[in-house]
Design a protein around this nucleic acid. Structure first.
Lengths: 257, 257
DNA sequence: TGAATAGTGTCTATAAGACAATATCCC
DNA sequence: GGGATATTGTCTTATAGACACTATTCA
């Protein structure tokens, strides 16, 4: 039973014992978080990107990233990064995937926990993203839940803008976000995190269509959403819309996704 | 552009620069993996547990765990742990969630990447798990995809065995596995990872019912599975079953879940 | 032959898609 | 009033559940 060393040394802090590694000693990692801040605007998925001003990947576009500090959880780090790099708080945040390939970062052993955050487009308009940060439109080159990387565009998808060079594996991460959201939509009311508190059925359908990348049947969508019990009318209706105003709804559940 | 230090020191390897942390310097982490090796036997979900023979959590029951080595990815570490602690290779492995709360482990800062592995019960019978390892039945105290921890039982669920004390947050991890599998079942043919290459529709239905924790309509299940195009008859039929033999099927897709 | 489950066919209930008709607002 | 979209209602089609009936094997 050689449980061995009880003493700590600076370069090897106290760690769980009795576990096996190839070289016998657990190596040290840096842990970072990457956050995909996603919204839906005018039928497009968009994500916050920041142009990198220094190596590595200088000049390429990256998700907000940051180290996990010594006294915070990865999730807290993600929220801190969102606050600092994107100027947003109180957003829905969920863990996506953890990357840790040995040669992922040439400068050392790094584990990255990727998160995605959802926010309604209206709130982003009044926020102050940091230097070089902007909302890039996403082009998804696959259907359904096939998966794979997505492209980030400088302009709106419909305007044929060139795709931006993405740093690291951030194109893959954004692709996983889209795939995850499409999956969630099958059984969870994802949409309301991308919408203001009150919205019309048309707004909700457009968000669903934007996430799924395909048109939906209007009648069926109305019926199923109204029958789901997740919506309740606010009593308000649209104003000044040039046509019959739609009723506003809110979600009856405060959480979900 | 103070990209600074190119030199490495033992206690602080070269790390990405230009990122913010509360204390200015990225701290070091140990990274571990925990693997839930899950199967379905006779209508029960089961997972491999190992009784811990040393602190912390001595005497409690834990998933197979291990450090991520210096030259392997977390996924490779998970496969290595499965091979060493459970004696299994060539299993379906998927990432589940990453845990990294600051006080998760009293001995230092640890990030744990949790995985789940699926294997058909027949294969486990011929394998040799390590010392103190066994397949524990899982009792799921919630319905649908509510989520929450599950209990591990020393005996079969139906036999009223006492629930075993689980180490760390492994009850939560197992609960997340069940929740994840139930979610996947809505849109992916999860079942075939828990079945041998050839199986009857009854076998498949029992696996689905075991995962979901509820009975399914036999007629609808048959129709939808056969209409899905995911199954094809092997041409073989059961033998010596005391009743009309069922046809064997195989999955037409080699991957999925 | 009987027990037991596999597999088929049919009917019904429910959900989804299509489409027409009406309602309501702003210009 | 005209344009535009919301909302309601009805009809059709697809899918899921219920159930009766036949088929096949082994004890």
């Amino acid at each position: 039973m050689p449980r061995s060393r009880k003493l700590r040394t600076p370069e090897e802090p106290n760690r769980p014992a009795g576990l096996d590694t190839p070289d016998g000693r657990p190596p040290s990692f840096s842990v970072t978080v990457a956050v995909a801040l996603v919204t839906a605007i005018e039928g497009e998925m968009r994500a916050l990107l920041i142009r990198r001003s220094e190596p590595p990947e200088e000049g390429r576009f990256a998700l907000p990233i940051g180290f996990v500090g010594g006294k915070e959880s990865p999730e807290e780090a993600a929220l801190r990064v969102l606050r600092k790099k994107a100027g947003v708080s109180d957003v829905y945040l969920a863990q996506l995937y953890t990357f840790g390939a040995p040669n992922r970062d040439p400068r050392g052993r790094v584990i990255t926990v990727a998160y995605y955050a959802l926010v309604d487009a209206g709130r982003l308009a009044s926020l102050s993203p940091g230097e070089g940060a902007f909302l890039s439109a996403l082009r998804v080159p696959w259907k359904g839940e096939t998966g794979g990387p997505v492209e980030a565009l400088g302009e709106a998808v419909g305007e044929g803008g060139a795709s931006l060079p993405l740093a690291f594996d951030h194109g893959e991460i954004l692709g996983m976000v889209v795939k995850r959201l499409r999956g969630k939509l099958h059984y969870a009311p994802v949409g309301f995190q991308l919408l203001p508190p009150a919205f019309t059925l048309r707004d909700l359908q457009l968000v669903h269509e934007t996430i799924l990348g395909q048109r939906l049947n209007k009648d069926s969508f109305r019926r199923s959403m109204l029958a789901s019990g997740l919506l309740e009318p606010t009593g308000e209706i649209e104003a000044k819309v040039g046509h019959r105003p739609a009723a506003f709804y809110r979600f009856t559940q405060a959480s979900a996704i």
